[in-house]
């Protein structure tokens, strides 16, 4: 039996910091995530459960809503991704499973997705170099979500605030490739 505590590894192995103030980049290795997939004919039930447990409605369009320290982001037709900080060893799969027994599948995604946040007044210019969707404030606002790709790597992007700050997640194995593109794209603004 192992007698030492195992260390969780970041998905971003070759990480570096971006100097300068026009854009900043942060790793979010501290999140717990779970996928919620609604079983056939159980949409109303699922909405009800969320409403009573969190006091919110799940978004029917690509948006993110947050209540009681847990965010739910639209993740495709009849799917949502629940996201929360992993403080006090929270584990969303274990939290949600009992709530949704028989009405939705709950699948742990904590380790499946690597997450970064990109913030600052040049964040849009950085992202334009790989993200094909329109991030102009008239087209994409705080609370908006999009599933798309960046530099040929599938991502989920949500705008967290008007800074703007974008939270971007991708499958874990792509983390370093994504970061390599991101650092390269930030260079122009890092002086």
């Amino acid at each position: 039996m192992a007698n030492t505590q195992w260390v969780a590894a970041s998905a971003f192995v070759e990480w570096r910091d971006i100097p300068g103030s026009s854009v900043s980049v942060t790793r979010r290795d501290d999140l717990t995530m779970a996928n919620l997939g609604v079983f056939e004919g159980q949409s109303d039930k699922v909405l009800e459960v969320i409403r009573s447990a969190y006091g919110i409605d799940l978004p029917r369009t690509p948006k993110i809503v947050t209540a009681r320290g847990t965010s739910f982001l639209w993740y495709g037709p009849n799917q949502w991704l629940a996201v929360a900080a992993r403080e006090q060893n929270r584990d969303l799969e274990l939290e949600l499973e009992p709530l949704f027994s028989g009405v939705a599948s709950i699948v742990d995604q904590t380790d499946a997705r690597a997450v970064v946040e990109i913030s600052g007044h040049r964040a849009r210019d950085v992202l334009a170099k790989g993200v094909p969707i329109d991030l102009h404030p008239s087209a994409f606002k705080t609370g908006d979500v999009a599933i798309t790709h960046a530099s040929h790597i599938g991502i989920v992007i949500c705008q967290m605030d008007d800074n703007p700050t974008y939270q971007i997640s991708m499958f874990r194995s792509f983390a370093d490739s994504f970061a390599e593109w991101l650092f390269h794209s930030c260079e122009e603004f890092s002086n």
Binding site: T61, P62, G76, P132, I133, I147, T148
Partner: peptide, 10 residues
Amino acid sequence: PCCGERSLDE
């Protein structure tokens, strides 16, 4: 209908 207009490469 879910995501809005996207390029063919998606």
